[in-house]
């Protein structure tokens, strides 16, 4: 799949933002006044910048409000509701913290649940797609939730939860890479089933349907840059998980340390999210005889 910058920025930043808001809503960082303004402001800024970035990949963003209508069937619509719900429900909680007071915990709990639901809904947009076998697996929601929770724990400066979540994120990342590699083969789709010609023998592409690229190939048959995927996987795990884990275990969480840990984690998260898209293969690639190194067929690379 094409790793569009707008979608990578959207999923990474809004994930981190809602992760931070989740921890703040649960009272993980009992701060007041200016410190509260800074932390809550960061959470809101990340979440809102991420959501705005998501509109850049729309063909007609002026109609974006229509995306709130189909929550009964569409995960994208549910994500919209959950995100707006979380952002609105947490306004009084944030204002109370900045003013130096506190609301009854139930306000924060409901807001935190909406933050969780937002990240889960984002992950389901990808996990629901049977056409992208690597995504269509439990590792996708696990990955999105682990990233959001880790970023939230680091940003709130909670050493122990941040260390535990960083370690858990590392495990989930490695699992998503390893288990994801065999998903396409296990789905059972091949050029033989895609064309039905498998019943006659072994089909292969004789001539392309068109002489240059098209929307399908640009959007869903991305093979550029996969040659570095092994190195990028290491970089993703080290930056998103290992370095924050070490910092959170051995360094006290003063603000500059938290900032460094968070930036390292986010750098890893961006690499991991790029791989999430770039390594995912869509079954439509079969019609073009183009699958990446994973498939081992012609056209990859």
């Amino acid at each position: 799949m094409h790793p569009a910058p707008s979608v990578i920025i959207f999923t990474v930043l809004s994930g981190a933002g809602f992760g931070l808001l989740f921890f703040l809503a649960l009272g993980a960082a009992p701060v007041f006044g200016l410190a509260a303004l800074l932390l809550w402001g960061t959470g809101y800024a990340l979440a809102v910048i991420g959501l705005l970035a998501s509109t850049f990949h729309l063909g007609n963003p002026q109609r974006a409000l229509r995306a709130f209508t189909q929550w009964r069937t569409s995960w994208l619509s549910r994500e919209g509701w959950a995100s707006v719900g979380a952002l609105l429900l947490l306004v009084p909680v944030a204002l109370a913290a900045i003013a130096g007071g506190a609301l009854p915990p139930v306000f924060g709990l409901v807001g935190a649940a909406f933050c969780l639901a937002t990240v889960a809904a984002t992950s389901m947009i990808y996990a629901q797609l049977k056409t992208v076998p690597r995504w269509n697996y439990w590792t996708t929601p696990a990955l999105f939730l682990a990233f959001a929770a880790t970023a939230g724990a680091i940003l709130t400066g909670r050493n122990l939860p941040a260390a535990i979540l960083s370690a858990a994120l590392g495990v989930v990342l490695v699992l998503s890479f390893r288990l994801g590699d065999g998903r396409f083969a296990r789905r059972g789709a091949s050029l033989g089933t895609a064309t039905g010609l498998g019943r006659l023998g072994a089909p292969r592409v004789l001539a392309p349907a068109h002489t240059s690229s098209n929307y399908l190939m640009k959007e869903m048959i991305h093979v550029v840059g996969r040659k570095h995927s092994r190195r990028l996987r290491w970089i993703a795990v080290i930056f998103a998980s290992v370095l924050p884990l070490l910092i959170m275990l051995f360094v006290p969480p003063v603000p500059p340390v938290v900032a460094v840990a968070a930036l390292l984690h986010l750098a890893g998260a961006f690499v991991a999210r790029w791989l999430f898209f770039a390594e995912a293969e869509h079954v439509v690639g079969l019609y073009y005889g183009q699958r990446g190194p994973e498939g081992g067929t012609a056209g990859g690379g």
Binding site: N60, N214, V284
Partner: peptide, 26 residues
């Protein structure tokens, strides 16, 4: 009513949907 998010094209196994490059609708 189409916002051109492209998710339907991702959901289709057969590559039956193409987002129009000029109008931004599916």
């Amino acid at each position: 009513a189409c916002i051109g998010c492209g998710l339907c094209a991702w959901a289709c196994p057969y590559g039956a949907r193409e987002l129009d490059g000029a109008a931004g609708v599916m």
